[in-house]
Design a protein around this nucleic acid. Structure first.
Lengths: 212, 212
DNA sequence: TGCACATGTCACCACCCGGTGATATTTGCC
DNA sequence: GGCAAATATCACCGGGTGGTGACATGTGCA
């Protein structure tokens, strides 16, 4: 029976490609970028490491694939933000911050990649950071056209600071479960952070923030 | 001549101890924690790695020494903050944030250690994070007694968010020179960040921030 | 059927790592 | 001077890494 069903073939390139990609994610999540190598990934994927070189061109190509996935996930998350309902600049920023917090918190691969960027400066990590910046800034410039930018305020800097806080808090929570004495484990902790970020965004932009 | 001057001895324990510690800092700064190991440090110190084990008890003891130095540097930097001149809670927080930004920006070892904390969760990195948190919170609780805490505001959360932003921006600048499209290289960039953080702190706490 | 190719496996290489025991040399005291 | 201890060096171990060439086996087409 030479013509077997593609589903239960023992030799299926696309299947092993998926297995390698999944293993690449799993190893990155479990061991971090320090333990992210061909041997560990091949072991986790249950195949020979040679296939990583054949199908992805080695670690670099595999990392690129993860970066592409990450950028796509950010775009997807931002696309779900209900922009038309936001009528002030502060509300828009608060929504963006909220989306960023949400997607990053549920995305351990992105968390590891960000920690990677912060630890090693090379072409790969620079490409990671650029992809995320582009996804964020692209969405924002595309959306802010509808809403007036407050005058006399350094909006890009404030937005960068808020995004930076989100990143640091989420990455720190994954590593040690808290930050500067503020616990980051229970859902209530995250709600507290969410409210704080919203408060800051509104206080920075909208003259009178609504009572909470 | 058995009684040589201690200054030009070839065999001087305290001298090599200092050399090892300096090499530990240098290697951490240059290669990051991924390349921070006994072989590289001994090579940089110009001595045998055996001495690292003898004098510091291995990598763990050496890392502890670096952590102790870091905590001491934070305390020193905070001690220079002119607390008596600050009469509002927002001003106090702004001064703390400013001190934190200043010390971290001039402390590449601390930058690497923070990136380390964000990448690996073990007893060592947890001890690092705890030491920094303790230095910060200890100073703050010791100082805030003089100034009334604004009611109805989650001050610890806001402070944590601002500190988190500082950390993320500085670490990111060291790694890729910018963050979310905001350049972080020239002194003017840092002044811009400084002003933004101050604006946020005052907007969050003091009802009417002074005109800039 | 037979043959070419795609797919997967294995063995091996040089290199670096952390760690340790044995050994050499200097120092300082008696 | 002599001798013990402190200081420093060397050689080696097992193990892990990224990378590569040779080989085996399943697949699908002529």
């Amino acid at each position: 029976m030479p013509h077997t069903d593609p589903e239960d073939r023992t030799r299926d390139r696309s299947r092993t490609e998926d297995a390698i990609l999944a293993a690449a994610r799993a190893v990155l999540i479990e061991k971090g970028f320090g333990g992210w190598g061909v041997n560990a990934i091949a072991r986790a994927a249950g195949c020979d490491k040679q296939l990583i070189y054949r199908y992805y061109g080695g670690l670099d190509g595999l990392a690129e694939a993860l970066g592409t996935e990450m950028a796509r996930d950010i775009v997807t998350a931002l696309a779900a933000v209900p922009v038309p309902q936001l009528n002030t600049y502060g509300e828009l920023v608060a929504a963006m911050i909220d989306a960023q917090l949400h997607v990053l918190q549920g995305h351990p691969v992105m968390q590891r990649i960000i920690a990677w960027e912060l630890s090693e400066a090379n072409d790969l990590t620079r490409a990671f950071a650029a992809a995320r910046s582009q996804a964020l800034l692209g969405w924002f410039t595309r959306v802010k056209g509808d809403i007036a930018t407050p005058p006399g305020i350094d909006a890009p800097a404030i937005n960068a600071v808020l995004i930076a806080a989100v990143q640091q808090m989420v990455i720190s929570s994954a590593a040690i479960g808290s930050f500067a004495g503020m616990p980051l484990a229970e859902p209530a902790d995250w709600e507290r952070l969410r409210m704080t970020l919203r408060h800051l965004a509104l206080a920075a932009y909208d003259a009178r923030e609504p009572a909470k």
